[in-house]
Amino acid sequence: MAGDPLLTRARRVWLEQAGAPVAFPAEGGAHVVVSAGSLLCPPGWVGIVSVGDAAIVTVPAPGLLDVMREAGAGLPAAALTDPDRLRRAVPVAEVLGPGTLDYCDERTFQPTTPNATETIPPGHRDLATLLASVPAGDAEQCGLAEITSPAFVVRNGTRVVAAAGYQHWPGQAAHVCVLTVPDQRGRGLARVVAGAATADGLANRLLPQWRAGHEASRRVAWALGFRRLGVQLSVRIEG
């Protein structure tokens, strides 16, 4: 993957989130830094992001530096984002993830049907109604409440049944957020709305990013031309 412009841009996004000077090692492996303000993970947790064959790790306090450096020395970068393998190396108390990280650009993007969606502002009452109509976990995980782009929606009558947008992240990323109501899933609506959001991000010279925690979401990303380049994992260490 050396010299891959998509890989370079994806890494830049996560370097901006780290909250401290850090780099993905050119020779592979992991670089561990202390960053109490890291956005790779919740406050007080360890954040691990692998992109390509290298990883960056942020720890909330100096006392965890040696713990994670030893783990990074004993495991390949990809294994650091595998909860089962990581547990064998460090005392993990809680885990968030892993989530795969997929990206696309103008070369890989597979557009959906143009003009198949309606555009509404972020925070529109119909978007709030959609979020209130699904299980709380779905509403929280999809991220639509925090989008900074317009929302691209499909309706069934007057009811919004699928929506997507993106959060504008540091590093010039468009972090894509998508949600379909449970009784309308399996009809390809997620691909339609997410395709519109992705096209908008590309038109604004942003890097579309897709973070997925389950296979159905990954299939939508791959159908739109996203490529899996990395994995994100957050862990809380015992003690």
Rank of each mutant, 00 (worst) to 15 (best):
L207P: 06
H214I: 08
P21N: 04
E118R: 04
L75G: 11
T117V: 15
T117C: 14
R236I: 00
A173S: 15
S149D: 09
G239Y: 11
H175C: 12
A10Q: 02
I147C: 08
G123S: 03
V51N: 06
L127G: 09
G225W: 05
C142V: 01
P135H: 13
L207R: 06
L65A: 07
D200T: 02
P114L: 05
A78N: 11
H31Y: 12
R125F: 14
A2W: 11
L189V: 01
I48V: 14
R227T: 08
L101I: 00
E70F: 06
A199P: 01
A196P: 03
P25D: 00
L131S: 06
H214D: 08
L206Y: 10
R159W: 07
N204W: 03
D138S: 10
T158H: 00
D200M: 02
G29M: 11
A174T: 04
F226N: 03
T58H: 01
P98N: 05
G213Y: 04
L39V: 00
T81P: 00
N115C: 07
A2T: 15
I237D: 10
A221D: 04
P91S: 08
Q209G: 07
A139R: 12
G97V: 04
V95R: 13
D66K: 13
V193A: 01
A30Y: 03
R219S: 13
Y166P: 02
A61D: 15
V235M: 09
